[in-house]
Amino acid sequence: MKTNLLHRILIPIIGLFLVNTSMLAQTWQAPADAAAVKNPFEGDKAKVARGQEVFLANCKSCHGDPGAANFLPLNPPPGDFASEKFLSQTDGALFWKITEGKLPMPSFKTTLSDDDRWAVVAYTRSLANALPAEAPKGMFDGKKVAVALTVNTEKRAVSAKVTFAENGVEQPAAGLKVRFGVKRTFANQWLSNTMITDAEGWAHFTYPEGVRADSEGKFIAVAELPDQKLSVTETVTFGSAFTGKNLLDERSLWTVRTMAPWWLYIAFFGTVLGVWAFIGIIALNIFKIYKLGQTKK
């Protein structure tokens, strides 16, 4: 009986399950009717901005910076929002996929409103024209690429002009990845998305307010070309001044002896003096014993 049950029911079910999942893994198609739905916010700039906000809060952690192809290495790969794979899909298909999800991609049906999901679709669509095209891989291999930074202190902006030299002539390097950040003690703190240099070789970044800087508001801005393993720095003055608390200014167990905690002085000298007071009393007793012996004589 048991083998029969296994053969007749369980194995076909398991088989079906395996076939289904492997088929689904290969392609993820939105149903035709869902794919045909139009984006109600098409071309709405305010919604594109809202879509970017939602994107940064909910999507970026896996999908990475649009155009930078720095999404998480998951299986199946999350993919880049600015890639052909995404942009070739209809608005309705993108909306359906955000809504339904497919693990490891979660469903946003209940966490994001319909409007927000459509806003993300509008934002995705806007990426098609906004992003400069990335240069073909290997185009700058073996060429000397240089970066020059210009700083606009009032606007907290840093611009990188990327050039390369060919046959002794300096030319703008278009389509290279650039990112901006702050040079910290052990690593760089990246503040910008990965950008692509435009046709003139420029990439611009406006630093947010309140970047922690030294006591004079200075910090070292850094622009990096990750593919070229090239980075340049510039000390800028528009950070927010920060004076750290020096732990050695407090009384504690780990500082110099003049900064020892009061309780330790009291405990240490109190105990030592207490014990030695008793030793003193004993010494006095010995003297008394001697005196008594003398008087007896």
Binding site: I282, N285, I289, G293
Partner: peptide, 21 residues
């Protein structure tokens, strides 16, 4: 021997000192 003669007062001091120690 600290001039020990075994006076009761000496014994008393000695016992008390040893006990303290």
């Amino acid at each position: 021997s600290l001039g020990w003669v075994g006076l009761p007062e000496q014994y008393k001091l000695l016992h008390r000192s040893i006990r303290t120690l």
